[in-house]
Design a protein around this nucleic acid. Structure first.
Length: 236
DNA sequence: TCGTATGTCGC
DNA sequence: AGGGTTGCGC
DNA sequence: GCGACATGCTAGCGCAACCCT
């Protein structure tokens, strides 16, 4: 299999980053596949330039529950064999969090997992989403598919994965039940690819904007690339 | 959410 | 059509 | 009188909806 480079980015508004030079950035960065989360737009709201970037096919999944909310996208040089937009469960598909692209060599799953901070209901939704996702991915593996899963998981796994573990042990994003689900996920033989190469602390993927936490590197590692065991040997 | 201020408890 | 304000979500 | 812990206050961004002109 030829070498491919896959990137993932929670953009917090694709129309906002377009104004800040996203298209030029993508053409310069030149990945084989780019996965975006929190695009906050339906494809009908996007310009032609954003839908048809030179050299890329684009696929979007957007929320039908609320405008300007959630949303994911894939930009891909190679055209997938098949693209799907959910697990087949309306409750989880309708918020536009899932886009799945099947290639000959693997299946790419790009997900913006729910945030559980708002209230107990949303935390339960997040946990239910996690379970539905695990069912979905396990079924694909059982069928012999090789999986590459990326996105904003909204949970830090271990103390090493955030700057303030003690202070956040009762906050959604680092709750015992959320962390235990990740334990369970990994026990099903999926791998956290970053930790295959790096076991150092202070490696984060998200910083609070309000408190300008990035300046002090007070962050969380909540965005991941996972792979199924049958694809692990291909990760470089 | 982070950092800080302020209050309460246990000892 | 476009600015200002408010509310939501992260 | 001190540590451990709880509670209240705080502050950017992007987007939608609504008002106004």
């Amino acid at each position: 299999m030829k070498k491919m480079r896959i990137l993932s980015w929670n953009v917090n508004g694709i129309r906002a980053i377009q104004k800040k030079g996203f298209i030029d950035w993508l053409l310069t960065e030149d990945p084989d596949i780019l996965c975006l989360q929190e695009t906050k737009a339906a494809p009908e709201q996007l310009s032609e330039e954003l839908l048809n970037i030179n050299g890329y096919k684009s696929y979007f999944s957007s929320s039908i529950v609320k405008k300007g909310y959630s949303g994911v996208a894939i930009y891909t040089k190679q055209e997938p064999i098949k693209v799907e937009h959910g697990f087949g469960i309306p409750k989880f598909d309708d918020e536009g969090r899932i886009v799945v692209a099947e290639y000959k060599e693997f299946v790419l799953i790009n997900i913006y997992y729910p945030n559980g901070k708002k209230n107990e209901e949303r935390l339960q939704y997040k946990m239910d989403f996690y379970e539905a996702f695990l069912d979905y991915s396990n079924k694909l593996v059982k069928k012999g598919k090789k999986l590459v899963i990326c996105g904003d998981v909204n949970t830090a796994h271990k103390e090493i994965d955030l700057a303030r573990p003690k202070e956040n042990s009762k906050v959604s994003g680092f709750l015992p039940i959320e962390r235990e689900w990740l334990d369970k996920f990994f026990s099903h033989n999926y791998h956290d690819t970053f930790r295959m190469f790096n076991d150092e602390p202070e490696n984060y993927s998200w910083w609070d904007q309000v408190t300008r936490a990035r300046d002090r590197n007070v962050g969380w590692r909540i965005d991941y690339f996972f792979v199924s065991d049958n694809f692990k040997k291909n990760v470089k």
